[in-house]
Design a protein around this nucleic acid. Structure first.
Length: 185
DNA sequence: TGGCCGATATGCT
DNA sequence: GCATATCGGCCAA
């Protein structure tokens, strides 16, 4: 399977976010199918606006770069910047664990497989994300392959935001039990 | 299933 | 200093 190339991230964040659903992400022997993403552009909820000092330049000037931030003190969230012509980033919210599932389990005893990477904080933990990855070329750290089978995508409002809540820029694989709460539909 | 709440990085005043 | 956050774990019902 040919890997996805950097030009994939040149499109607007919404398009990249939708196209990522179903793709397989892999790093260091751990892999999974992406089942949930969210797009952020220059809307009121975007870190391009709300965290302009740290995220503004990265989201505005780059595409295909890693952007990691911490939320609620302890959770990391993995994003990839998008849009060669404007600000954008895509938050990776959930994956369906594939290869390396035993290592993901080993890091977190007692957690059901379904929950290993369901939600942005858990996903970051499952993939061993650290904040110092910010700024790196996404495809230098991760291998990304097209969907092994076509994904049916449903949209929903983004999670955990208080502004621009009318936008449905959350993209989920229809029917997947690996999608985080609240479930779309 | 739903509600509570910890624990802290980040940005603003 | 302060308010808020692109959450997640735990508990009661």
């Amino acid at each position: 399977m040919a890997a996805i190339a950097p030009a994939f991230f040149a499109s607007p964040a919404r398009r990249v976010a939708r196209a990522l659903v179903g793709c397989v992400i892999e790093r260091d022997g751990i892999s999974g199918r992406i089942v949930e993403t969210e797009a952020y552009e220059d809307d009121a909820a975007s870190h391009y606006v709300t965290r302009a000092p740290s995220a503004g330049a990265l989201m505005g000037a780059t595409h295909g770069r890693v952007y990691v931030y911490a939320i609620y003190g302890m959770h990391l969230c993995l994003n990839v910047t998008a849009d060669a012509a404007g600000p954008g980033a895509v938050l990776l919210r959930a994956i369906e664990p594939g290869a390396g599932i035993e290592r993901m389990r080993a890091r977190r005893s007692g957690v059901d497989d379904r929950d290993l990477a369901r939600g942005p904080g858990r996903l970051a933990r499952a993939l061993g994300i650290t904040k110092d990855m910010t700024g790196a070329e996404f495809l230098d750290l991760f291998r990304l392959s097209p969907p092994p089978r076509p994904a049916r995508v449903v949209t929903a409002p983004r999670v955990g935001i208080t502004r621009a809540t009318a936008l449905r820029w959350r993209f989920c694989e229809a029917g997947s039990r690996f999608v985080s709460d609240p479930r779309p539909g």
